[in-house]
Simulated assay, not measured.
Amino acid sequence: MAGTLYLIPTPLGATELDVVLPEATRRIAAGLTTFVVEHPKTARAFLKQVGTALPIQQLTLLELNEHTKPAELKALLAPLLAGTDVGLISEAGCPAVADPGTDLVRLAHQHGIRVKPLTGPSAILLALMGSGLVGQRFSFHGYLPARPEERQQALRKLEIRAEQDDAAQVFIETPYRNMAMLESILAACRDDTWLCLACDLTLESELVQSRRVADWRGQLPPIERRPCVFLLWRQR
């Protein structure tokens, strides 16, 4: 009988585990011995906080990140096919959401392996909840193009979709490019478009603010190198 693939959320930053992870999630993670992780160093730090039944050095950590080739995924599935329960851990937040773990989850379904998502923090949903924008309809776009001209074109298209679909448009950026993204939004979008910045979610330094684009100009918050979710919406 195949094992179960547990999708284990992790904190979005330096937050006490009991603040963001239910006891049941921590208990399941503590009882596993094999994990598929994005980065072993940060995964070990997380598992040390969880308090695993086995010493950290005796755990099996298999890597899955942006450098993993499709042909290598089957090897990651092998423990599950052999009957071992496995935990999937991403760098921060929920596995398989804007995360390379998606490919392993899909492969698990193709092999009839049970997939069990566990409760924990999702930066995308927390940002949407706190934004005051449209919660019934939204689209998540991951990362937008890095080149300024292409990024502004993408932003204009999202602004059009936000109005046509009456839906919040959600996206993220590499933290060191946050200010470049914010400047592109202010240059590309119309004054009356709503923009929400949701940074450092669940941390003491958390910032969640929604304003119209015109109101952000001249009042740019210090968001550089802070994990941030951006949301756009146009009120009909």
Results as ranks from 00 to 15, higher is better:
residue 1 M to S: 14
residue 4 T to L: 09
residue 5 L to P: 03
residue 9 P to L: 11
residue 15 T to F: 00
residue 17 L to G: 11
residue 20 V to H: 06
residue 24 A to Y: 01
residue 26 R to I: 10
residue 31 G to F: 07
residue 33 T to C: 13
residue 34 T to K: 00
residue 35 F to N: 01
residue 39 H to D: 15
residue 39 H to F: 02
residue 40 P to Y: 07
residue 41 K to S: 13
residue 42 T to N: 02
residue 50 V to L: 09
residue 50 V to G: 12
residue 51 G to C: 11
residue 53 A to F: 00
residue 56 I to C: 01
residue 60 T to Q: 14
residue 62 L to H: 04
residue 65 N to Q: 02
residue 67 H to N: 15
residue 69 K to H: 10
residue 70 P to W: 10
residue 71 A to V: 06
residue 74 K to E: 15
residue 77 L to D: 02
residue 78 A to H: 02
residue 81 L to K: 14
residue 81 L to N: 05
residue 86 V to E: 00
residue 88 L to Y: 04
residue 94 C to S: 14
residue 94 C to T: 15
residue 97 V to P: 00
residue 102 T to S: 15
residue 102 T to P: 00
residue 106 R to P: 02
residue 107 L to D: 06
residue 108 A to D: 05
residue 109 H to T: 02
residue 109 H to A: 08
residue 111 H to M: 01
residue 116 K to C: 15
residue 116 K to I: 12
residue 124 I to M: 15
residue 125 L to K: 04
residue 127 A to T: 07
residue 133 L to M: 14
residue 137 R to W: 00
residue 141 H to R: 10
residue 147 R to C: 05
residue 148 P to V: 08
residue 168 A to Y: 04
residue 175 P to G: 09
residue 177 R to E: 03
residue 177 R to C: 07
residue 187 A to L: 13
residue 189 C to T: 14
residue 189 C to L: 12
residue 195 L to A: 14
residue 197 L to W: 00
residue 198 A to G: 08
residue 199 C to I: 03
residue 200 D to R: 12
residue 200 D to K: 12
residue 203 L to H: 05
residue 206 E to G: 06
residue 208 V to N: 06
residue 209 Q to M: 03
residue 210 S to Q: 10
residue 211 R to A: 09
residue 213 V to M: 14
residue 221 P to V: 02
residue 221 P to Y: 02
residue 222 P to R: 11
residue 224 E to S: 10
residue 226 R to E: 06
residue 229 V to Y: 07
residue 230 F to T: 04
